[in-house]
Design a protein around this nucleic acid. Structure first.
Length: 674
DNA sequence: CCGCCTCGAGTTCT
DNA sequence: CTCGAGGCGG
């Protein structure tokens, strides 16, 4: 094959792929690849065509804006096409764009408007004689679908406008589903066994294209208007900014997060700012749109191909991607649960390489119909934790394998059991080495005994060398035995011994949590300490007595009884006791502490001290430290970069404290105790 | 018995 | 963060 033939073949292949994905995206509302991947295909094709113009055909995907609309709805021809925007993925791309446009109209002062790029679908609304007459999708840019009946159900779209409006005009906006709406919708769909929407855009597109408008009406769709398409009978304002103010005065919903920027530095600062804060918004954005403010300049700049020169879309790095599920591995947790996880072909999502993702349990895997060998859609939940959304069914070859939990524990080969009505599979062997090791790691971990320098790696090495068999053995470690470990010198060994020594006087609640009684976490451990002032007292507690304690029920009681009946466990406690680990509650229970009956929740990064330390203080003062904002939450302590909890607390009218106010409160409470 | 609210357990990556 | 499930009120 000659080089030209190879290129020809590649071009044909790219076109086929792009057409296929175009159809999936625009027609079926069910894309299989991320936007970034799609863009990459298009970019490659464009490059090849630029180098070999003779290969360009009129039907090449580069020669049009989108796919043909389906005909279930009437077709609307847009008097002025709804165009796509060129993309910028970096500051350099913005610089290049700026250089191009300033070169075209030299000597002009530019100012810009930056707007959020909402992840929804573009629609055009036409008003005639003050009434909404047509609502249409963007379609291929030149003609879209008539979805007037459906858009009429969107409450933020005015059905009529005041007399200050032009006689006839068209506005353009982005219809979208707020994040909460998507969650709710997907819950409903999961309950009905329907495939889930992968993102808000698909959900919005799916909602707006319902044949029955009553279904659309039940979806919490919203809209932001971002442009005046065309108008008759008025003198349109001279800038984009003023146009938006005018549209707002007509009753249209305009996104409040719109910024006027005098220069490129301000534009970039705005983009970076929103890249940081995008999570604070109740809807998804996939970037920002930068527009030249002056309408006269916009007209002067004109278009290149299908893209206006006067605007550019600054796109955030993709938060979704597709990759192959190579295999499903199993971890054995400290409770003996078998936890499946996905082993993925490494894929970069939002600048981070993902190769693992939790799969929770077997039912979850089957519910999502994920099979080994599948192409899967991966996203970072809450922008951090990787998550598999679902398989790309159409990319199956038939060689994929349905996953089944092994019948034997992958570590000790003991029998695997699944309790009646339980989602988790468990290793039946209570002496399973994996469980033993995980228990030790948990014991030393931050929330538990917090033994500095004794992390997962060291625990594993010590365990494999046979130097420790359970957490009680940690305290018999010697300087010499530690020196045999990897990357362990004189200094580190001494540090570890010092940390162990320091951990001996942790409060009783931490110890109870650390020993790993089933279903007893930090909170329940604290509650238990209010009723028993030593491990010994707890170990002698009877079933009825335990059940009498609020928030302790039959399961937790039985867990405690079973724990102390196991000789392995009492042996560990003996070892700890002999080593001098604190086994008692430091202070006798005080009924009326300053924070009694008050619940605090912390969000964001705290400047002065760690969250854990503060939670310990709250409990020491008799308060509760919750993890989620609820109706019962008394105070929300807000640090830097607060999470979604802030919005929730505001919605519930909960008292909000900043870090200083909170510390002041703690100080006053501590003073009162003296 | 059901639904709501919390808590527990396991998790990714830098 | 997510999912599952324990506790408890209605």
């Amino acid at each position: 094959m000659t080089e030209v033939e190879i290129i020809k073949k590649r071009v044909a292949g790219l076109r086929e792929q792009i057409n296929y994905h175009n159809h999936r995206y625009h027609v079926l509302d069910s894309p299989e690849i991320s936007d970034a991947e799609y863009d990459a295909l298009l970019v490659e094709l464009r490059k090849l065509e630029e180098a070999h113009p003779e290969l360009i055909t009129p039907d090449s995907p580069t020669q049009r804006v989108g796919a043909e609309p389906v005909s279930a709805f009437g077709i609307v021809v847009h008097p002025r096409p709804l165009l796509s925007l060129a993309n910028a993925f970096s500051d350099e791309d913005i610089d290049a764009w700026y250089k191009r446009i300033t070169g075209l109209v030299p000597g002009q002062d530019f100012d810009f408007v930056c707007e959020l790029k909402i992840d929804g679908l573009a629609v055009a609304l036409t008003y005639d004689n003050r009434s909404l007459v047509t609502g249409a999708t963007r379609g291929n840019g030149y003609q879209g679908e008539n979805i007037t009946q459906n858009l009429r159900t969107v409450k933020s779209i005015p059905l009529s406008v005041p007399s200050t409006a032009p006689a006839r005009f068209e506005v353009r906006g982005e219809a979208y589903l707020p994040r909460k709406g998507l969650v709710r919708l997907n819950e409903e769909r999961a309950a009905e066994g329907q495939p889930l929407f992968a993102n808000p855009r698909n959900a919005a597109a799916g909602s707006v294209r319902q044949l029955d408008p009553r279904i659309t009406a039940r979806r919490p769709l919203d809209i932001f208007i971002y442009a005046l398409g065309w108008s008759e009978g008025i003198q349109a304002p001279p800038t984009h900014w003023e146009t938006m103010q005018y549209l707002r005065s007509l009753g249209f919903k305009i996104n409040p997060n719109m910024t006027r920027c005098k220069n490129l530095d301000e534009v970039k600062a705005c983009c970076h700012g929103w890249a940081e804060r995008r999570e604070e918004l109740p809807y998804d954005i996939d970037g920002l749109v930068i527009k030249v403010n002056s309408i006269a300049l916009q007209e002067e700049l004109g278009f290149v191909g299908h893209d206006p020169r006067w605007a550019i879309a600054y796109k955030f790095p993709a938060v979704q991607g597709t990759t192959r599920l190579l295999d499903i591995g199993i971890n054995v947790g400290r409770t003996g649960s078998l936890n499946p996880y996905a082993i993925l072909e490494p894929v970069n999502i939002g600048g981070v390489t993902i190769e693992r993702a939790a799969l929770h349990n077997e039912d979850d895997i089957h519910r999502k119909d994920i099979r080994i060998g599948d192409w899967v859609l991966v996203q970072r939940a809450g922008e951090v934790i990787p998550e598999i959304v679902g398989p790309v069914v159409s990319r199956r070859t038939g060689g994929e394998k349905v996953f089944h939990m092994p019948a034997a524990c992958p570590v000790c080969h003991a029998e695997v059991i699944r309790g009646e009505g339980e989602a988790m599979h468990r290793c039946a062997n209570t002496a399973c080495p994996a469980q033993a090791l995980e228990s030790i790691i948990h014991f030393a971990s931050k929330g538990a005994m917090d033994i500095d320098g004794v992390g997962e790696k060291l625990c594993r090495s010590l365990f494999e060398k046979g130097l420790i068999k359970d957490s009680g053995d940690l305290y018999s470690l010697t300087h010499d035995s530690l020196l045999g470990m990897e990357r362990m010198g004189e200094k580190s060994a001494a540090n570890v011994l010092a940390s162990l020594e320091k951990s001996k006087d942790r409060p009783l609640a931490r110890l109870i949590f650390a020993v790993g009684i089933p279903n007893i976490g930090e909170e329940t451990a604290s509650i238990l300490v209010q009723h028993y002032n030593s491990i010994g007292a707890l170990s002698k507690a009877g079933r009825e007595e335990l059940m009498g304690i609020p928030s302790i029920g039959p399961k937790v009681s039985d867990g405690i009884l079973a724990f102390f009946r196991q000789p392995q466990n009492t042996d560990i406690i003996d070892k700890l006791s002999k080593a001098g680990v604190n086994m008692q509650s430091a202070e006798t229970v005080r009924r009326d502490l300053p924070f009694s009956g008050r619940e605090f929740v912390i969000t964001g990064k705290l400047a002065a001290s760690g969250r854990q330390e503060l939670e310990v203080k709250i409990r020491a003062l008799g308060g509760k430290a919750g993890s989620d904002v609820t109706k019962k939450t008394g105070y929300l302590v807000v640090g830097a970069d607060p999470g979604a909890k802030l919005a929730r607390a505001q919605a519930l009218g909960i008292k909000i404290l900043n870090e200083n106010e909170f510390l002041q409160m703690v100080k006053e409470a501590e003073d009162r105790l003296k």
